[in-house]
Design a protein around this nucleic acid. Structure first.
Lengths: 228, 228
DNA sequence: ATGGCTATTATGTCTATACATAATGGCCGA
DNA sequence: TCGGCCATTATGTATAGACATAATAGCCAT
């Protein structure tokens, strides 16, 4: 007679799906539901809060809780470290640092990082391989101000892994798109120029300084997948 | 003296970022932290539970809570209804149903929906336009068993919108990839064949029956974007 | 009418306590 | 030494009660 919060979440989801509580409709108050289910209000709250963060319910103080009219589905993606992604598939991971220099980035990159254009950044181009085959071409701009005195040896540890292990991260954004392979990318990934590549573009900041901008061009066949 | 759970979450994040608690390291128990912060254990629990679902912490009974060694970042994407996405950009939305028939789907589609190949499904091809320009080419297979007696008029309401408004949904998955435009897609979106297109592929089931498989080919320039 | 104040109400959060559950580590016996 | 049982321990969940906060709805005075 005292269902757990997961049971309540399931029951509420049923009532939403079966339209006992129609989209946009107001559902009973936490107290009412607690009485109905025979549990404490906190338990109902736990369940409803979860469903609200999942986008199925909209809650407002005093106004009550209503079923979301347009259920904007939220999918959560895992953004793994490349090495982990490759080894999880049972393939051998390796990478090659193809170039490293210190120059001013394109204005687009500087702008997205919030830096004045003209400020020199470390530019790294890395090819990531899975089982010896090219998998991802990485184009990275890195703020030298966040590095220690002795710059890490990025031929030994990939910039990605060094950063996740050593740099405090606070915010960032990520974007996915499809683009035709540039000649450089085509050569690195051994595909024909113009091939459709899946692109991941990421930008990260620590509390005060920009850290890095990175663009990953995935070899054809790459799929980013998740459950709804 | 009694910080809220959000304050505690922030403080814990600080200690993780500043490496007071290093990656892979064990952090103090809930009780210890509650004593330190001067609040109840439930409050600490609320904060740590959140950080665990966000992927920053790993918690195991008895073993305690440790900072995630490989912080698999989780990005949450909003999957909006196409109309909402377009009108949110201030553009006029419209769509054209280009074809509708009832045939057996390709084996790949049948397999992903968990149907025997040979079962006929409704096949809809729709072009979505934003401000009169082609935006998304939709290729959808729909299980007729889940439709009411009178099939909705999919020239008047898009299948997508009819489904979110009328069909109970339980599980599904979604995948993103990049593919070269097929001749049909190229013609519909008025791009050259072979152009790099961003592809969204979605599969949904209700409690017992498969609902639909849909593939969206986005016009060049499309970006799927989110905060980390 | 209309503007602003106030009482009401549902959610948001916190506390203290209790018991459940999972996993570890050590004890004990074969 | 090895295996299995059990106590310990940290998290997971539930409880009743309390106060905070936001937003509505109605009232009142202009």
């Amino acid at each position: 007679m005292a269902p757990g919060w997961e049971a309540i979440r399931a029951e509420v989801m049923n009532r939403i799906r079966s339209r006992v509580w129609p989209p946009g409709g107001l559902i009973p108050s936490e107290e009412t539901l607690a009485a109905e289910f025979g549990c404490a209000r906190a338990t109902v709250n736990r369940a409803l809060t979860e469903l609200a963060t999942a986008g199925l319910l909209e809650r407002k103080r005093k106004a009550g809780t209503r079923v979301a009219a347009l259920p904007v589905r939220k999918a959560t993606l895992d953004i793994p470290v490349i090495r982990a992604e490759v080894t999880a598939r049972g393939q051998a991971y390796s990478f090659v640092l193809m170039s490293r220099d210190l120059t001013a980035p394109p204005t687009g990159v500087a702008a997205r990082l919030g830096l004045a254009s003209g400020v020199p950044l470390i530019h790294l181009q890395t090819l990531h391989l899975a089982g010896g085959l090219p998998q991802i071409f990485e184009d990275r701009w890195l703020n030298p101000a966040i590095l220690p005195q002795h710059e890490p040896d990025f031929t030994a540890i990939s910039a990605n892994e060094w950063l996740v292990a050593n740099i405090a991260f606070s915010t960032g954004d990520i974007a996915f798109s499809a683009e035709a392979a540039s000649p450089a990318e085509a050569a690195a990934l051994s595909v024909s120029p113009g091939a459709a590549l899946f692109i991941t573009e990421r930008c990260t900041w620590s509390a005060h300084a920009p850290i890095t901008w990175v663009r990953l061009a995935h070899a054809p066949g790459y799929r980013l997948q998740t459950l709804l």
